[in-house]
Nucleic acid binder design. Structure first.
Length: 376
RNA sequence: GGGGAGAUACCAAAGUGGCCAACUGGGGCAGACUGUAAAUCUGUUGGCUGACGCCUUCGGAGGUUCGAAUCCUCCUCUCCCCA
């Protein structure tokens, strides 16, 4: 995938780069919209490409495995053809579901036993099985199977969880090397750093992950409830060890501020459900601040949703109209809010990148940060 | 004209002597949401107070009682059936 760093910030660890897979170039820093079930909820692929201009989206191994199932995805010729998305796709491995559906699973050295949230049926996810499934899905970027360590947890649990993830990683890499892509293009395998909020564990994990020599590296187990300062601290610890010449992917993060702070600490790739889920629930992110579209104050506000927004929906519809749609539970409200938020996130990444190339990233970041957290 | 039922907070609807400032649902208002079991969840919804608490409320007026949304009298209004 040949990551090329185009510019590095002089006042921080931030950098702008680019790498390419069979499904096109990805300029970093980048935000990847989450499309768990082979759909970014409430957003058309056409809007993702043409309006939001996302070069890569996420899908989820666990969800696609359960529904529609591997027979369908294989018969379709992989997930790109299935959903008619010919840009990049990254699949999460199901590691997050190990964490979020803890009540329905059992961890063993072999792997994780799940109860399907759809019909209750039992399934085993092992590092090998998860590689197989991601081969069948045909994602460009495939994730190692890990345990996303819960927070808070004691040192012993964090250590054992990390060691389990490491042992799973070795098996996953071996199986990845012993299998081939099914649809005629290369796939890449990303290992994941764990270690909870423990500096020593994070260092050990980052070293272990770096040694594997994978084309890109991920940081997991953060933004799971820990204080933001701890998250930033762990990112710093880990990024001091992960190779600088490969993309770094911070999984599941986050707010616009989280992302800018992580970029300045050397992270290149992000994903988060926040722009879509919070959008559906009426929360809009803009360069001027956050607004809750459900609030009464927009009831008679017929001004554009976001006069400074980069998406067509921003000037096409008014705040009062969007408020009405969201309060009424109308689907168009979720669509407009999701398009707006994703367009904003992608705009923010392009903007960060432009300032990195221009050489004034830190000044720009310092200036824009207060506005991003203010409430409108 | 005769007979019957009913009026409770924004709406609907429980409650039929003290555990009632009043169940529950809707609506309203506010909040949460970070590798999506989420178009979901939580709080709040008479007034004053930080809290204990106090004050005013169950169509209207009066009465019984230590105590009334609940019992009695009259009044006003609504709905249903028969003629």
């Amino acid at each position: 995938m040949n990551f090329r760093i185009e510019s590095s910030d002089s006042q921080s660890k931030a950098r702008a780069g680019i790498f390419t897979t069979a499904h096109g170039p990805i300029s970093t820093p980048i935000f990847m919209p989450v499309g768990t079930a082979a759909t970014v909820k409430a957003v058309h692929q056409r809007e993702l490409a043409e309006d939001i201009d996302a070069p890569v989206i996420l899908a989820n191994t666990y969800h696609l495995y359960l529904r529609p199932g591997m027979e369908v995805l294989q018969a379709a010729g992989g997930v790109h053809r299935f959903m008619n998305w010919n840009r990049n796709i990254l699949t999460d491995s199901g590691g997050y579901q190990v964490f979020s559906m803890a009540a329905n699973r059992k961890l063993t050295p072999e792997g994780a036993w799940f109860s399907s949230h759809i019909d209750g049926s039992r399934h085993l996810f092992s590092p090998e099985i998860v590689v197989e499934i991601q081969r069948l899905i045909g994602s460009d970027l495939t994730m190692a199977f890990d345990e996303c360590t819960p927070y808070p947890c004691d040192e012993k649990y964090a250590r054992e969880s990390m060691e389990l993830t490491h042992s799973w990683l070795l098996r996953g890499i071996e199986h990845f090397r012993n299998t081939a892509p099914l649809y005629g293009f290369d796939q890449y395998f990303l290992p994941i750093v764990q270690g909870s909020v423990n500096r020593d564990l994070r260092k050990r994990s980052a070293s272990f992950i770096a040694e594997q020599g994978m084309p890109a590296n991920a940081i997991g187990g953060l933004s799971v409830g820990e204080p933001e300062e701890l998250m930033y601290e762990m990112i710093e610890v880990v990024n001091d060890i992960l190779p600088t010449n490969k993309p770094r992917y911070l999984m599941g993060v986050g707010t616009p501020v989280n992302i800018l702070e992580a970029i300045s600490r050397g992270v290149d790739m992000f994903d988060c459900v926040m722009p879509t889920r919070n959008g559906r629930n009426g929360m809009l992110f803009t360069r001027n601040g956050i607004l809750n579209m459900k609030n009464e104050k927009w009831k008679f506000d017929f001004s554009p949703i976001d006069p400074d927004g980069s998406s067509y929906v921003d000037k096409y519809y008014s705040k009062a109209y969007l408020r009405h749609l969201i309060i009424s539970g109308e689907r168009l409200g979720a669509q407009i809010a999701s398009i707006h938020n994703l367009a904003f996130y992608l705009w923010l990444m392009r903007e960060a990148r432009n300032h990195l190339l221009k050489g004034d990233f830190t000044e720009w970041k310092t200036k824009i940060l207060p506005a991003l957290t203010s409430r409108l």
